[in-house]
Nucleic acid binder design. Sequence first.
RNA 1: GGUCCGGUAGUUCAAUGGUUAGAGCACCGGCCUGUCACGUCGGAAGUUGCGGGUUCGAGUCCCGUCCGGACCGCCA
Length: 448
Amino acid sequence: MHRVDPSLSRIPVPSEELAALPDGTAVELHGMVQRIRRLSWGAFVVLRRHDGLVQCVVPAEAAGDAMSRLREEQSVLFRGTLRKAGIKDVSIRLRTAELQVEGVEFLCTPDEPPSVDLTKKVLELNLDTSLDLRPVSLRHPVERARLRIADALCHGFRQYLRSAGFTEIHTPKICFAGAEGGANIFKVQYFDRQAFLAQSPQFYKQMAVAFFERVFETGPVFRAEPHQTSRHINEYTSLDLEMGFIGGFADIMATETALLASMMEHLRGACSYEIDLLGARLPAVPPSIPAVTLAEAHSIAGAASGRDYSAEPDLEPEEERLVCEHASREWESEFVFVTHFPTSKRPFYTMDDPDNPGTTLGFDLLFRGLEVTTGGQRIHEYGMQVEKLKSFGLDPADFDSYLMAHRAGLPPHGGLAIGLERLTARILDIENIRLATMFPRDAKRLTP
RNA sequence: GGUCCGGUAGUUCAAUGGUUAGAGCACCGGCCUGUCACGUCGGAAGUUGCGGGUUCGAGUCCCGUCCGGACCGCCA
């Protein structure tokens, strides 16, 4: 037996701390070689570290044959001293100092040069190429910065909800039945039975309301729909929450408003480098996000386009854009809630509005022309839920384990789900949400 | 699933139906150089997605097929 050496648990020094070190401090930096500019006396080597790029000065005499062995995408360990510098390149994170290298250790040299030019300021790849080459293309500073934004949003989501009395849960992704119904569910072989991939943590988070009152989850959900658009993928990250003891569905919208404000504040603080690099324009979350009914949304969109949408049971993508433009112009909000979708268009667990029969206490949140959230108040009474299942043509017996929670009593509750990739894409003004996804899954893409 | 658009070098793109299909970046070699999208000279790099057809001649026109994209349906 031997014990693990605890001193091996080293944390890479953040760039902010490097920037604060006095001139001449001896440091060791590891990383991968992002780009090399060879000069007569040596080379400038831009090192890709965990949190950003740093410029290193490698004199020819620094380490024997190091100059001739240097390659892009090598893993290296540089020993040297920090020196003040004024670096113009905004893709470099540490701009006030550089590493004067005195010793080089090569940890790994790639077998082939990268298949795309990672030294460019912007990786100008076709979407398909970028996705095919994901293990390489994501090494580019701009490409990986998008995922860092998504990470910060996720972190902000967790941080706010934990501070607001929510418990993080982890629900199964292999399920007996789907929450949303319909044919858009992936079947999987589960030993000798058929199971399904979760379309949503809906059932489980509702059950959890009875024991944790407020819960959230960040995890994958799966939709087997053959859609082929810039805003759909078949596996996406759902930022879910569910909360009990609500006074009405407006409580949920109010919670999302505070949540989004907190997430943006966190993002601004955690990702200033990435925000600058990507030229991201963070939205201001108003103290109160405007809300319109579906009927009002149709009327706003109709006035803008001259078309009549009033018979549509749902919002068309064009309407989402028009309503957002209207909200931005007239109400100074890039966010807008749309409420009261028809009963037939919302899942069976959605509560109907007793004051407006045929419509639901559900909402969508539109942001910069795209639906980024769906939420609503759920049915908490057993009898009401059984009746609605039947009216949807479903057999309550198929939902016995779900209805067990209703029979045992549930507080009035509701919740929502934010599409992480969609939110990220709209914040960054990315055309296709696949670029806000590390390894997107769609009808035509299963690798990498 | 429907409609429309596209597929040329590793990559991003050019190329009236008419010489040997070109350019930038990357790559390889030389020169220069505290660079920062470094500069400069040269080199290598192609089954024009695939199959058929029209034509004296097809990257280009036609048909089929494969792959991809946008929009729609559906949804976050």
